[in-house]
Simulated scan of single mutants.
Amino acid sequence: MKLELSIKDKYYQLCYTYRIHEYSKIDVYSNLKPGEAKLKYNSIDEFYMEELSISNEELIKVKSHFKEFNRLYAKYFNKSRGELFSNSEEFMKWYKEQGEKCKYCEVSQKDLLRIVDKRNGNLTLNQKTKRSKGTLEIEKLDPSKGYTYENSVLACPFCNNAKSNLISETDWKEFFVPAMKLYFKKILN
Rank of each mutant, 00 (worst) to 15 (best):
Thr17Gln: 12
Tyr12Gly: 05
Ser88Glu: 13
Gln109His: 09
Cys15Thr: 10
Ile26Tyr: 05
Arg114Ala: 15
Glu36Arg: 06
Asp45Phe: 02
Glu169Tyr: 01
Ser152His: 05
Pro34Leu: 08
Asp171Tyr: 11
Ile7Val: 12
Leu14Trp: 02
Gln109Phe: 10
Asn189Gln: 09
Gly35Cys: 06
Glu139Tyr: 03
His21Asp: 13
Gln109Ala: 14
Gln13Ala: 09
Leu125Arg: 07
Pro178Ile: 10
Met49Val: 02
Lys63Ala: 07
Glu57Pro: 02
Arg119Ile: 00
Ser144Pro: 01
Phe85Trp: 02
Leu3Glu: 12
Ser6Leu: 10
Val177Gln: 07
Gly121Met: 11
Val62Ile: 10
Phe184Tyr: 15
Asn31Gln: 13
Asn126Glu: 08
Gln98Asp: 03
Tyr29His: 14
Tyr29Arg: 04
Asp45Tyr: 07
Glu57Trp: 08
Thr135Arg: 09
Gly82Asp: 15
Glu139Gln: 07
Lys40His: 04
Lys8Arg: 10
Ala162Pro: 02
Ser53Gln: 08
Lys79Met: 12
Leu3Thr: 13
Cys15Ala: 15
Lys181Glu: 14
Leu125Cys: 07
Asn78Phe: 00
Lys33His: 11
Trp94Gly: 06
Asp9Ser: 12
Thr124His: 01
Glu89Gln: 14
Lys140Thr: 07
Tyr29Gly: 03
Leu188His: 06
Asn120Gly: 12
Arg114Cys: 09
Glu83His: 14
Thr148Lys: 01
Lys130Phe: 11
Ile20Trp: 02
Leu141Trp: 01
Asn120Ser: 14
Arg81Trp: 06
Ile167Ser: 05
Asn120Leu: 11
Ile167Arg: 00
Glu50Asn: 06
Asn56Ser: 15
Asp171Met: 10
Phe69Glu: 03
Asp27Arg: 08
Ser144His: 05
Ile20Phe: 07
His65Gly: 04
Lys8Thr: 06
Leu188Ile: 07
Ser64Phe: 10
Glu89Lys: 13
Cys156Ser: 06
Lys79Pro: 13
Lys2Gly: 06
Glu89Pro: 05
Glu57Thr: 13
Arg19Asn: 11
Ser53Tyr: 01
Leu32Met: 15
Ile187Tyr: 08
Tyr147Lys: 02
Glu50Lys: 07
Tyr76Asn: 01
Ser132Ala: 15
Lys185Arg: 13
Val116His: 09
Glu68Met: 08
Pro157Met: 01
Leu52Cys: 08
Trp94Arg: 07
Ser108Asn: 00
Ile60Leu: 15
Lys67Arg: 14
Val107Leu: 03
Ser30Lys: 12
Ala155Thr: 01
Met49His: 02
Pro143Trp: 01
Val153Tyr: 05
Ser108Gln: 03
Lys67Ala: 13
